[in-house]
Amino acid sequence: MSYDVILSRDSFLLSVELRIFWAIAFIYGASLLLHVVHIASRGALAGRAAYLLLWAAAVPHAGLIIYRTFEAGRAPFQTLYESLSWFACSAVLTWLFVSRKWRGFYLPGALVSVLALGASLYALLSRSPAIEPLSPSLQSWWFEWHVILAFFSYAVFIVAASIEICWLIFRRRPAPYGLAEDKLKGFHDTAHRLVLFGFPLLTFGIFSGAAWANEAWGRYWSWDPKETWSLITWTVFAVYLHSKTVPSLKGTPASVFNILGFICMLMTFLGVNWLAKLLGIPSLHIYPV
């Protein structure tokens, strides 16, 4: 195959990917808009439409990630562009999976669609979608597990935080939004169960990251800002889980810890890059542009 053919082929494949990703971002945007209408009007129809739009975006998004895997010939989370896409898709799929039990209650989808839209637009507008070969340090079994598990835990924490925020705001009058009052406790318990599910994933994500760093650089921990923020996230979720067993803390304080954990998770994923650049702190984890 001549080089001209290869270059044209790769340009065509990338153009297909970009068009689909933009279309997905638009659908996330439409879903967010309908969620806002649902919150304002309390109309179930808008909520259901927003929910269905999330399905309509997430399924092709998962397909797009598989497409990217074949296009790049490797797992699709080497660059920030790929990680953001993965982050958006996994969060929406996790919410869609969890929401099966709470049919007719669409509110948590609002935060999920905000994050999915934000991550997609950030990827599309600010990052390059170029596919590059894997640098030697990223060619590790530990790296793949580290990223897969960390992102899986992120997706779970996003949904847990969405539920927690909905519970804090709407716990006094959930009925107009489609949740019967007798189901409120069960709904709120879902946030706790999700954190219980995500916490071991985050733990393994941090452990595999340390094992990878030990294999690649000879130091399992170097207090790099990203490493430290992942430890902060882990610590805050540990605070949340412990506070659920303390009678004086298991109510609203625990909910606040859950939301703080979610904010720390966002800092670990994105905020720390900004912080490291802002403060001029060198980091091994700053994504290349």
Binding site: D10, S11, S15, L18, R19
Partner: peptide, 10 residues
């Protein structure tokens, strides 16, 4: 590029 008005180039 996303709207298909232009093609990315390698």
């Amino acid at each position: 590029l996303g709207l298909g008005w232009k093609l990315p180039e390698h």
